[in-house]
Design a protein around this nucleic acid. Sequence first.
DNA 1: CGCCCATCCTACAACGTTGTAGACTCGCCT
DNA 2: AGGCGAGTCTACAACGTTGTAGGATGGGCG
Lengths: 338, 338
Amino acid sequence: MAATLKDVALAAGVSIKTVSNVINDYEHIRAETKQRVMEAISELGYSPNLSARSLRSGRTGVIGLAVPELSLSYFAELADSIIKAAERRGLKVLIEQTGGDRDHELDILSSPRLQMTDGLLFSPLGMSNEDAHHLNVNFPLVLLGERIFGGPTDHVTMSNVESARAATAHLLSKGRRRIAVVGGHRGEVIGSAGLRLRGYQLALEEAGIPFDPDLVAYTTLWHRANGATSMRELLASGVEFDAMFGMNDTLALGAMRVLQEAGRTIPDDVAVIGFDDLDEGRYSLPTLSTIDPGRDEIADTAVRILQERISGREGDVPPREFETRFQVIERESSALRE
Amino acid sequence: MAATLKDVALAAGVSIKTVSNVINDYEHIRAETKQRVMEAISELGYSPNLSARSLRSGRTGVIGLAVPELSLSYFAELADSIIKAAERRGLKVLIEQTGGDRDHELDILSSPRLQMTDGLLFSPLGMSNEDAHHLNVNFPLVLLGERIFGGPTDHVTMSNVESARAATAHLLSKGRRRIAVVGGHRGEVIGSAGLRLRGYQLALEEAGIPFDPDLVAYTTLWHRANGATSMRELLASGVEFDAMFGMNDTLALGAMRVLQEAGRTIPDDVAVIGFDDLDEGRYSLPTLSTIDPGRDEIADTAVRILQERISGREGDVPPREFETRFQVIERESSALRE
DNA sequence: CGCCCATCCTACAACGTTGTAGACTCGCCT
DNA sequence: AGGCGAGTCTACAACGTTGTAGGATGGGCG
């Protein structure tokens, strides 16, 4: 059906290798020959068979991206950034959803299906630091996220502790002293929840405010529903607070909704800040203060170093850690006179 | 590096074709031989080279999905559903972002890069009905969305007219008579905006209410910002209305936010309904009434018929149109005594 | 004049897989 | 006994591409 090098070669009266050379911009070709080949190519509508090319070269030009779910806005926006970054580097992205499930994640690391790709950007949620050794795979892998640190691969992550500290400090700077936290994971030390909670505690410590465990609401997932439920629990518990730090924007928005239902005014009664800088927070009522974790920078760095590993130039460079710059974004939900 | 059939064959003391047969579950193999091969396979950690396989078979097991942007929640949730539907059928999904740009869209239809896939799910935004002939491509293609009707390919779409009519009828049933519309596209007949506006008009007609052009706010894109801007314009224009139909949830949420800023109570002053059933609308304040367009059904149907076309069993079946079932979902933003 | 080198092109093999054709062994039927 | 079909396995070619080795031509230089 589709034209091959052979067809073009026949039409142009040259060998297939010459056609291949034309396509690959080989230098030493007579202008006239080149022209003739080009004409044959466009006449036959030839375009190279990528499977064959990749069989020969060992490269597919495709990278895999494994995330929990695209319906979680954070990962949708991350995927968006990554696809754009990959496009700038001539790569395509194949997306795999793990559902945040550990078994599914481990599956992907060992699955042969992934061989249609040159490397993998991997953002686990179910795996924990003890699973780090599973990252020892024989294909290029760049780890994203906050579940595993010190693993055997390159790792790109946001500055969780620092930025959570800045978020908390921001609320403190508004005169708030009783800051609730929504989204903790019980017992977690490493992982977004653990790290961000640590940042929160550090900020309190700096301000000389004792940590009150009753102010922390724990959730399993970080969906809107969990934010809502957590906030209901906090309110029911009767604990007092004048601010809230949502471990991500989605949680914060879910919680904010419940706060308002309960008649609390934001930011006057409760000042709120989230984390992730989702587009959604720009149009909520009130607009949501947040941490911009530098998503584009994460995407760009991740794709760049994955490509470096794929090209093999860095063969024996030891695993590297990258932390991106963050920024506190003040919007209405925390806009109080300082 | 990686083991090949040859290595396995050598280790098991059989021909490579026998190994291939074992892998492909060929019937007539002695149990003992099979066992020996299996052992060699797991010992060497062999897994088939998909590029070679796809060169031989002409299939990659990957389908493409071209959408405007994943950061638009609707497309993120659509992609989520499609990836899941594809997984159920043993397919992987490669995602391409067009930015809703016509040139980029046309590019994809002619691009050789797509040859790493067996077929394409294509959701254009920039192309219009006059571009329909560009869909005449030599690879399996299933069209999604509302930009092009009657094109040369299979098409899966939601019931735009019917569901917009139902949405409008819902507001009418709440006693509302002046229903503003946010998200019109000037002059558009075909396309989500055109069709949904038509549904709106049909509902009015049925209720014997004259159509007032001043109630329609036009936008270019359907982002939150556009919903917000449109609503500001409507308010500034001084036109009176007691309800609003947002052509999608994102617009509705952006507009709702402005309405509330302006001191209007929802749903008492203005009843609101959107379109898409985004997760976000479940946790907004107030929660957003909407149309569930049957996203999972769209995804499932689209992947199914694409796979049918890929398998070629339907060689000469003419292009088919599929319309999914929709549902009106009433939430707080339109919850009035009837 | 003869040699060498650059230019331009070609033949062939190889990447790892699967389809095709066929070899060989049995047991069973005629 | 001979033939036939089913079961088991193998050799070979082919998918479309690119790397390698090398052939042919012509110009420059000793």
